[in-house]
Every structure is written in structure tokens, then in C-alpha cells.
Design a protein around this nucleic acid. Structure first.
Lengths: 150, 150
DNA sequence: CGCGCTGGTAGCATGTTGCAACCAGCAGGA
DNA sequence: TCCTGCTGGTTGCAACATGCTACCAGCGCG
């Protein structure tokens, strides 16, 4: 039932993304999906979310094309939830949130889960916003080009 | 009153970020701050959010150190809300959400607000997740290194 | 000194969340 | 075959959060 958007500045891609994801639980579900969770129970245990909420979120994520519901890979009669290409495209969003959290909400040395490069086992390089010709950009180097309402 | 976290997998930086931001409105407030909004009324008109909600969100963002409340720059007795360095560090998060929205929730050619490089006026390069040694990484190239609960 | 603007509060209806209980299908064991 | 436990839900209800509307206080200008 995501027919009506909650945020009416509909020309802004950020608002549409936010509306498409739905809520924070959905984002954490996506994070868990990146971390390898596939089954209802895995998400439920990992998140500690109420089952009815999880049911609803999984449904809207599937309806929104972020997750797909596929037959379980272990041959059982159950289903699994896997990221679609559109869901995988959320990777930079999750990484950005992760890096911001690492930076500002952990004391130095405090243990936390880490996202590492599978080949080298090293932590990732911080995300960088770059211009079309490759210069690093800070917020002040950018401007929002508002579209005329015509 | 963000004393208690809503998400208990507290070793995950993503969860902490999500908890620190609070809700989607807060994220859109931050987006507007990047776009140049500073005054209560600007946020309110831009977002269409109820004023009591906006009041609460601005307060928690200030309490969380994402925004700072400073005397108005025009000399009036009012206050303005500006991003702190911690708030500015959310830039990649907003850019990532924006790019995902542009990619998946607009028809080609559909008008929308654009974030451009101020110097060249060009749209930004898509964010790229890279390893420490600079290789581009897809989700499958990474793994979450869960921390032992000791 | 009156009026409008900004930046809020207060009260209330409604919607959403979360908890707990319940339930159906499948699987394995005795 | 029946018992038992696990997975993946659904349902009902109480509590909380949201959003709307009305109201209000301080500033600033004429």
C-alpha cells in the first residue's frame, strides 16, 4: 500500500528514495541482506523486530522491487528474500551510513562489525563525492539546481 | 530524548547512524540544510511537515550534534540551524540516496532537482565503493567481519 | 499602538508500532 | 501413526507517535 507518498516534494530524488525504502527497519533489512541474511527467521533474529512488522516490511520491499522472494536454496518448501539489482544498488547508501556511524558513534578502539574487502581483508576507503571530471567535492562545492515547475 | 536506542544490534555502525538520525524527516531536514535552508520557516515550507514535529526534530538534531542553533545571520533576534561538521559528514549519505532515487524512481527525461558541481555546473559522478588499494567493489566483493562479543 | 511575521505550544483524532498469543505446514523420531 | 518442534507467519489489542488545527508570544515596522 505504498500508493500515496508521504513526502510531497516529489521532484527531489532523495525524497523519493526515502519514500521507496519506507522506514528504518526496511533499511536495516537491506543491510542484513547485504550481510548474507536470506530467511525470515534470520532477519527476525538479527533485528529483533516484531514478526508482523517484519512481514509487512518484507512485503513492501518485495512489492517495491528491492527484494525478491524466491524458493529456498536448500530445497525446503520455504522462501528466501534476496536483493534485486535495484536493491544491490543501495550498496553505497549502506556503506555511507556505516562509515558515518563508524566515524562519529564509536570511540576509537571500540569493537564493531566491519565491512571489509573480501580479497585483502582490509577496511574500505571512505566514500568520496566527485565531480564529473574527477575532483573531490565538499558540500560547499555543490549546488542544487532546482527544476522549474512547468 | 534519544537516550534509549530503538535498534539493539548496537555493534553495527549502520544501526547507530540510523538511530542517531532518528527518522526520515530528520534526513530530509539535513538534505534541506545542504540545499541552503537555515530558518525554521524555510524547513517548514520546504518539507510541509507539521510544526510540532519540526520543532522536535530540530531539537534532537541539535542535541545530537548534527545541527547547531546559531543567532540569525541577518541580525534579527531569531535563530538559524546550520550543519555542524558531523552533519556535513552526512554528505555522502544524501548523495547516495539522491543518486539511487534518480536512477530508479524517475523516468528518463523526467524533470527533477539536480545536485551539480558548482564550478562546472555538471552533474556528479556516481559514488563508487572502493577498497583500501583503490579497486572498485561490488557488494559481493565485500564481507562483514562480525566482531566477537567479548 | 496595531498589525503581521516568525517560531513556536497545546489538544485531540488517527495511524502505526510492538507485544503476545495463536496457528498452519513441514520434518524427524519412536 | 502420532507426537513434537521448527519455520513463517496472522490476529487482537494497548500504547505510542504523527499530523492537524488552533492558539500564542515576541519582534519589528508603519
Amino acid at each position: 500500500m505504498v500508493t500515496r507518498t508521504r513526502f510531497d516534494d516529489s521532484a527531489c530524488p532523495v525524497a523519493r528514495s526515502v519514500d521507496a525504502i519506507g522506514d528504518w527497519w526496511s533499511l536495516l533489512i537491506v543491510r542484513d541482506a547485504f550481510d548474507g541474511s536470506r530467511r525470515f527467521g534470520e532477519f527476525q533474529r538479527s533485528l529483533g523486530v516484531a514478526k508482523n512488522i517484519l512481514t509487512a516490511r518484507l512485503r513492501t520491499l518485495v512489492a517495491g522491487g528491492v527484494l525478491a522472494s524466491v524458493p529456498a536454496s536448500d530445497g525446503s518448501a520455504y522462501r528466501e528474500y534476496v536483493l534485486t539489482p535495484k536493491g544491490e544498488a543501495l550498496f553505497p547508501v549502506i556503506v555511507a551510513l556505516r562509515q558515518w556511524g563508524e566515524q562519529h558513534y564509536f570511540s576509537p578502539g571500540e569493537p564493531h562489525s566491519e565491512l571489509v574487502d573480501r580479497r585483502e581483508g582490509q577496511r574500505l576507503r571512505p566514500l568520496e563525492v566527485r565531480s564529473a571530471d574527477g575532483r573531490r567535492l565538499d558540500p560547499g562545492d555543490t549546488a542544487v539546481h532546482k527544476v522549474p515547475t512547468r
